[in-house]
Design a binder for these strands. Structure first.
Length: 287
DNA sequence: AGGGGGACCTGTGCGC
DNA sequence: TGCGCACAGGTCCCCC
């Protein structure tokens, strides 16, 4: 399901149900997702307070009163839902109730305050792990991540340096979480379209001003997508059941055969395959 | 060493 | 209607 904007949307949806509240009971309904659940998962979580719910790249990080952090990744198809009377929505609110198959409810958190938070993931590419919060720098999933697109550390100069000497395509480079954290297939396609750069271009050939333009495009597309509540494909929904809207603003992703939106371009969006995944771009204006 | 492709899973939608 | 195939937002791992 999720790239950075969708994970951030989930984080914001879960915050009122989880932040500052104790986990009264936690349970895993199976031994593993992509990886095994941590040892004594239920015991280590039950009774502890979620001090804060953070996000880094595509990871949700629940900071626990026990001194541990619960790291959660949604893989391709993971999602959270909340059931709670006191958090229910007002009449007239736009509500989309995703029909999740309960057979894929893999983890459940009963929260102080009455909310039940359920993790559902049909494909099970997601995972959860626990690590000591003080040892975050050594956490393998977090240690080598590049800068957040919205941080000061991410800039044209950073991209310029990160792409230097790279012989892979720019598409592959931007998907590399060490270069910049949180991008996935959709937002890479969108950012490259905005920057007028072909996804097939060799990364090392994007120096100086073009790297600056690309960094700006990445920042903008991620910021706009977060603002829109992420993108809703198939039946993905935010944790509070609301849909994101950014999919209506895709300029290239999923638009094979349609007109390029660059003014006066007149080109047609094509789909190609790179790294065994779909890429969408306009060969007319993206070079 | 860097980079490309397959593997991990299940569900869905499309063409025949 | 039914079947099989292609494809899906991620990322680890193996092999070249």
């Amino acid at each position: 399901m999720p790239e950075l904007p969708e994970v951030e949307t989930v984080r914001r949806g879960l915050t009122p149900a989880m932040e500052g509240r104790r986990i009264l009971a936690a349970r895993a309904n199976r031994a593993d997702l992509r990886f095994p659940f941590p040892e004594r998962f239920a015991e280590r979580l039950s009774g502890t307070r979620v001090e804060r719910l953070d996000r880094r790249a595509k990871y949700l990080l629940a900071r626990l009163g026990s001194g541990e952090t619960l790291l959660m990744h949604l893989g391709m198809s993971g999602r959270f839902s909340i059931e709670a009377d006191d958090l229910s929505r007002q009449p007239g609110d736009f509500v989309y109730a995703p029909a999740a198959n309960p057979a894929h409810d893999h983890a459940v958190f009963e929260m102080e305050g009455g909310a039940t938070v359920t993790y559902n993931d049909p494909r099970r590419f997601g995972f959860m792990t626990l690590f000591p919060t003080e040892a975050e720098d050594a956490q393998p999933f977090l240690a080598s991540l590049g800068p957040e697109p919205g941080s000061n550390a991410f800039s044209g100069a950073h991209l310029d340096a990160a792409l230097k000497g790279r012989r892979s395509s720019i598409k592959a480079a931007l998907l590399d979480q060490k270069v910049v954290a949180g991008l996935g297939n959709i937002y890479v396609c969108e950012a490259l379209w905005r920057a007028r750069i072909s996804p097939k271009r060799i990364a090392a050939t994007i120096p100086g001003a073009r790297a600056e333009r690309l960094a700006h495009a990445v920042r903008a597309v991620i910021a706009e997508a977060i603002e829109a509540g992420g993108s809703t494909l198939r039946d993905y929904a935010g944790a509070d059941g609301a849909m994101g809207y950014f999919q209506h603003r895709f300029d290239v992703y999923g638009r094979e055969g349609e007109a390029c939106r660059t003014p006066d371009c007149g080109g047609t969006v094509i789909r190609t395959v790179q790294q065994a995944r779909s890429s969408f771009h306009c060969p007319g204006c993206q070079r």
